[in-house]
């Protein structure tokens, strides 16, 4: 899906936990997530802290969308 969307010219940032799969699939902008069943959350944290974690990942992803890339790039948090 990442590639098919990006083929249209719309940039895509892929938030995922298993980065090697994303690289194999061919995503160009990749942001690593927390865990497979909760990529953008963490039930062990308080609701407030969990929200912050989610906000950080989303902000990082938005930032990735503002950066021009020429090859597959992983944006670490």
């Amino acid at each position: 899906m990442v590639k098919e969307i990006e083929r249209s010219g719309i940039p895509v940032v892929h938030i995922c936990t298993v980065v090697p799969i994303s690289l194999t699939v061919g995503a160009n902008r990749i942001v690593p997530a927390i865990a497979i069943p909760h990529p953008l959350g963490d039930a062990d944290l308080s609701k407030e802290d969990e929200y912050k974690v989610r906000m950080n990942i989303v902000k990082k992803s938005l930032e990735a969308l503002t950066i021009d890339v020429t090859e597959q790039t992983v944006f670490e948090l």
């Binding site: 969307i5 083929r7 249209s8 719309i10 940039p11 995922c16 938005l62 969308l65």
Partner: peptide, 22 residues
């Protein structure tokens, strides 16, 4: 799937996509 909904994205004027995977 993606080629179909990408048409929606284009006509809705979407500039960028966040795609999440588990």
């Amino acid at each position: 799937f993606a080629s179909e909904f990408t048409q929606d994205l284009l006509s809705a004027g979407v500039d960028a996509v966040i795609l999440t995977s588990t």
